[in-house]
Nucleic acid binder design. Structure first.
Lengths: 166, 166
DNA sequence: CTATAACTTGGAGTCGACTCCAAGTCAATG
DNA sequence: CATTGACTTGGAGTCGACTCCAAGTTATAG
């Protein structure tokens, strides 16, 4: 129950798994708020700052560009999304984006599995936006089968061709 | 069915959902093999080329850098992964990468849901149980993939409090 | 015959996200 | 007191992945 544990930029970088330069860069572009400084001018971080950096790393891993991460942090900082309906909308929309990304990734996994299983390749990985799939948590969704042709940028015979046996 | 349908670069770009410049760029960096040319020098594409480009787009969406996509295409082109055990290993490893990415994304979705549901934030997406594994050294040169140390997402236990578990 | 459109090429420019550097400050150490 | 090390700053450089441009060719339309 110590008062408040604090960290140097180096310790913070280690804990969050990113470089000190990156932390300074995030502050520079104001993705992170200006960190408190000690008397000697050194940056001082607290657990919540590390959590924020971790959140950034996590979102980045989902392929979200830094600019899109901003609204998440704004909400995060305020702990009150209800007050920012616009941000909430953006977040909800990004949630949908992520959900479809999950579907897309799952298809790639299926694709790989099929290829590896039968020693053949070729056949596209259905891309894109799919209509309305719900949420759910594919914990270990073994084979869910490559989805049927749905969306598609255009009405193409693309899906035609050789189907991977099965 | 006609023998072999062919497409111009523009049609190909439209079908694959990327720009013609990007197709030329991929050829320039040899991610795509040099396309056949017509008598007038124009590039000529076939369905399989479009499939390949779609595969690239799909893998890109999973956050894979172009250089890592190469081996996939090599296997794809040969339609015989069995002959390239090394490539198969890389692909398997990328499969794992994708699976963990899915977990990561699901984490973010859960995070958002919790956030939106209770109007509070804070609680990271973290590397939660990183009690005692070696941290990734900052000296890590060029590796952006998910280090094993980076994956320890909390299960949606975030409900109750916000006290970081350590 | 010219204009337009669709392509070709090599190369330059852009953008996001770092990553590195030089010069300086400050605290502790030999 | 000189050195070492961890930090500070502003700014330059890098890298991946495009994106745009100028100059040229070829095919078709008016």
């Amino acid at each position: 129950m110590n008062a408040e544990m604090t960290f140097t930029i180096k310790q913070t970088a280690e804990q969050a798994g990113i470089s000190v330069d990156t932390i300074r860069y995030y502050e520079k572009i104001a993705l992170l708020p200006r960190a408190d400084r000690q008397d000697n001018g050194h940056r001082l971080y607290r657990m919540k700052d590390i959590d924020t950096i971790r959140l950034i790393s996590c979102l980045k891993k989902t392929g979200m560009p830094l600019e899109e991460i901003r609204p998440f942090l704004a909400v995060s900082a305020n702990s009150d999304p209800g007050e920012y309906p616009e941000l909430v909308d953006r977040i909800k929309s990004h949630r949908e984006h992520i959900v479809s990304q999950i579907a897309s990734l799952q298809q790639v996994v299926d694709f790989i599995d099929i290829k590896l299983a039968e020693g053949k390749y070729r056949q596209d990985c259905p891309n894109g936006s799919q209509a309305g799939m719900g949420e759910n948590k594919p914990r270990e969704p073994k084979s869910k089968s490559v989805s049927p042709a749905e969306m598609g940028y255009f009405p193409v015979s693309a899906k035609a061709g050789k189907s991977p046996a099965f």
